[in-house]
Write a protein that binds this DNA or RNA. Structure first.
Lengths: 221, 221
DNA sequence: CGCCAATGTTACCGATCTGTAACATCTCGG
DNA sequence: CCGAGATGTTACAGATCGGTAACATTGGCG
């Protein structure tokens, strides 16, 4: 346990195996960069166990890399957290574009599709609320991740509000905030009460809310 | 250390000072028991920094006690967490009785009063979502606190559902889950986006939801 | 007073955490 | 092929964590 038990003692925790990744010669011609592997592994572990519940050793282990490489790319674990949240935000931006392509100009359809996809994704074992989960656990107001989270949340609210306006519902601001509250509430309940909790009705509730706002505006047309 | 002004969260320890509390001789004739002080201090710190962000040293420091006394009353930190959550659940039960006394037999009034009080309390610096916050951070399915959380959430849902039934709204189950999602969503947003976020409209949204369900059932009477 | 239980104080253990140093190895363009 | 930079390996530093042992002190009660 002193010196040579190092490798054995490492294996008791999270470990990801891809065949023989140490042999890079003929393994995979397009193996992703260590930086990307580290970020992806960190995001997966952060989602499952929270940013405070995962250590850098587990991250580099899952990424099939090592601690030195991590600290050559990120000045600290907090820096890595910030990068993970930034990527989550960028994926969200791409997701908005995807929704726009699926329903060009149709804010109502984009909103309904959005909540439907969220409802479908609620069943996944890994909750997708990376940013909110991190916000709950990073209580320090000065933490650099807080500004990233806030910026992302503000951008999300702006975009949803724009969709609500495009949908020409009765009260766009109210529907926007209603949906945001419902979504985060569903994610939180899903994490604590599992699948059978109130989040099971999220799709029904959110869609009913959207239609309720849309119908009450139909009389004005 | 060419990062920004953010100091690593390792250095700053929480420390509470009350005059000269070490001198118990003439301090306070009815000083509460160390056990209660520890539990209260733990709950306050858990609310502010999360169960994983507070160490036992900070807890006994805030309780003006010491680690040995803590471990004479609780077998472990997890045991203390469970006790804190149990007390939160008991306070919630007392809160339901209080609402029943304020509006005897009137489920609708109890519901509206409930959401109004939650909205008022959202402004408090310490978020009151102890159980949900703990659930997010205790990702281990086998953690003893998980069963306490689940039991409490189920009881809460049963009670809210009963209130909705007593209110004789159109769809009691749907209103119940809608309110539960809105409430947790508001608490989560309040913690990440602060005051100006979507949680600012929580009272308006939740009350509108209640009235919407109540009105749609009024035609049946 | 004198006893006793509860509480406080100090010091420590082992595990784990973030982060680093020194050195070995690999990849890839010239 | 060769050399430079990126990456991997090993070992360790410093700090914090949960938890414990031994001992000192306090407060209440006969």
């Amino acid at each position: 346990m002193l010196q040579n038990g190092y490798k054995a003692s490492r294996g008791n925790r999270l470990r990801y195996e891809f065949g023989r990744p140490n042999l890079m010669t003929t393994d995979s011609p397009s193996r992703r960069s260590p930086r990307d592997r580290i970020v992806d592994a960190a995001r997966g572990l952060f989602r499952k166990h929270g940013v405070r519940g995962v250590g850098v050793d587990a991250i580099v282990d899952a990424a099939d890399s090592n601690k030195m490489t991590l600290y050559r790319h990120f000045s600290s674990k907090d820096d890595l957290i910030v990068e993970c949240l930034r990527r989550a935000g960028m994926e969200m931006d791409a997701y908005w574009r995807e929704l726009e392509e699926a329903h060009p100009g149709d804010g109502l359809a984009q909103l309904r599709d959005w909540v439907r996809r969220i409802a479908d994704h609620l069943g996944a074992n890994d909750c997708n609320c990376e940013l909110m989960s991190a916000a709950v656990q990073l209580t320090d107001e000065d933490h650099p991740a807080r500004s990233v989270i806030k910026k992302f949340k503000d951008a999300q609210r702006d975009h949803v509000l724009e969709l609500c306006r495009k949908a020409r519902v009765a009260n766009a601001e109210l529907l926007c905030d209603t949906l945001l509250l419902l979504i985060e509430g569903a994610r939180l309940h899903q994490q604590s009460s599992g699948h059978e909790g109130p989040s099971a009705r999220f799709a029904e509730i959110a869609d009913a809310a959207i239609l309720s706002f849309a119908e009450s505006s139909a009389v004005a047309e």
